[in-house]
Design a protein around this nucleic acid. Sequence first.
DNA 1: TGTCTATGTAAATTATTGTTTACACAATGT
DNA 2: ACATTGTGTAAACAATAATTTACATAGACA
Lengths: 70, 70
Amino acid sequence: MGKTAIVNNIRRFRFEAEEMTQAELAAQVGVTRQTLIAIEQAKYSPTLELAFKIAKVFAVPLDEVFQFQG
Amino acid sequence: MGKTAIVNNIRRFRFEAEEMTQAELAAQVGVTRQTLIAIEQAKYSPTLELAFKIAKVFAVPLDEVFQFQG
DNA sequence: TGTCTATGTAAATTATTGTTTACACAATGT
DNA sequence: ACATTGTGTAAACAATAATTTACATAGACA
């Protein structure tokens, strides 16, 4: 699917949410810490399902966490 | 990422958008027709990037086209 | 010093998404 | 009858997301 043109605000949301750690967020969405690191650093973009789960943890719509650079 | 718990309204949006065909939508988002069929039928869920592109064609937010059944 | 905690990196492997090619079929039109 | 259009299915393959395991480092703290 070509280069990932998707950015995210996971790190900001983590700190706004009581300084939630990467490990805590990873556990809440059911992935490993390394997977979350890779996504937070935009090394690759998550599946749609995982993106929904992450947004749900922060209780915001998906496109507040992830944005597509068209 | 386990079983896909994601539903979509692609078919409805296609018909609301001047009866756009699967082939037309596929071309606009840069995938093959078969890929679009599989996604429309929820055989698997698209990448986040592709999901954003599809929503953009219909000019609606991503979560109006795709919903996660938590 | 020594031990946690949080973060980062990397390589090998598995699972899933997406492509390509080909065939099938109903509806429409000439 | 024949061709065209829109949709559906299937299998083999390529690309990418995610896992697992392991090691590295900086800061806080007893």
